[in-house]
């Protein structure tokens, strides 16, 4: 396992942990003051392909099956550059594998497992959608990079000058990469700093609501002003 992931686990679980890394997939447990939690995740900016998606969904299903009526929290470590780009993977139906993984994560939630995601490294697009972004609470660790697309690629595709995009990114969190932008939009619940007691902070997150509060958070923080109100209007409006 990489030094940085080992250091992360030591810091999160000073009372002990046993996490195995195989093929960019992390799987194991960590000891918190409130008891053991499952640790499931990816490393080295993994490009999520069918193999990794299946390993993750298998780990989630095993956790649900093993815990039975005493569901323990699941801590996801997200470190992904996005989905694997490959013709073979598309032929197999990678989107279907991601959907399966998402269903497994949702099954765990329904079964009472608290779901916490820690972004350590990168969290990009489809790879992030499939599991990390589905948690009850999402935390970005220092240096975490969260994005759909970098601004140069976006400039190329939208034909909007790069300079204009960087200028606008100063005012609006909606398109430029950055964990802080996602925080302002409610897509990330907390940004941890390097000096805090992560073990204590993690433990504080192991209880809480299962509701999807992200749109409301985005409105409160001012980064996503329409998502909550538009959904509410559709939900309760008269036409």
């Amino acid at each position: 396992m990489s030094m940085s992931k080992k250091a992360l686990l030591d810091r999160l679980f000073p009372a002990g942990h046993e996490v195995i890394e195989a093929g960019q997939v992390l799987c194991g447990w960590g000891q918190t003051a409130a008891g053991r939690v499952h640790v499931i995740g990816t490393t080295e900016h993994a490009a999520i392909d069918t193999r990794i998606a299946l390993a993750l969904s298998a780990a989630v299903l095993r956790g649900v099956a093993d815990d039975g009526n005493q569901p323990r929290p699941i801590v996801f470590i997200a470190d992904t550059q996005g989905q694997a780009l490959s013709r073979r993977e598309e032929l197999l139906g990678l989107n279907g594998y991601f959907a399966h993984l998402a269903r497994c994560v949702n099954l765990a939630r329904s079964a009472g497992h608290r779901l916490v995601t820690l972004i350590d490294g990168e969290a990009v697009s489809g790879g992030f959608l499939a599991f990390g972004l589905l948690a009850d609470v999402i935390v970005a660790l220092p240096g975490a990079e969260v994005r759909v697309m970098d601004l140069r690629a976006m400039a190329r595709i939208t034909r909007i000058p790069y300079e204009r995009l960087t200028e606008l990114a100063g005012f609006s969190p909606v398109f430029a990469p950055g964990a802080d932008n996602y925080w302002r939009m409610g897509g990330i619940h907390a940004l941890w700093t390097g000096t805090e007691d992560w073990a204590a902070q993690l433990q504080a997150l192991l209880q809480g609501s299962h509701e999807d509060e992200r749109a409301r958070l985005g409105a409160e923080r001012g980064g996503r002003k329409l998502a909550a109100s538009v959904a509410q209007e559709v939900l309760h409006g008269h036409g």
């Binding site: 994005r147 759909v148 430029a176 992200r214 985005g218 996503r224």
Partner: peptide, 14 residues
Amino acid sequence: RLHEANAGLIAISE
């Protein structure tokens, strides 16, 4: 939608 990619990604998760 790339013009509002972060909002779009969170929206799809929602």
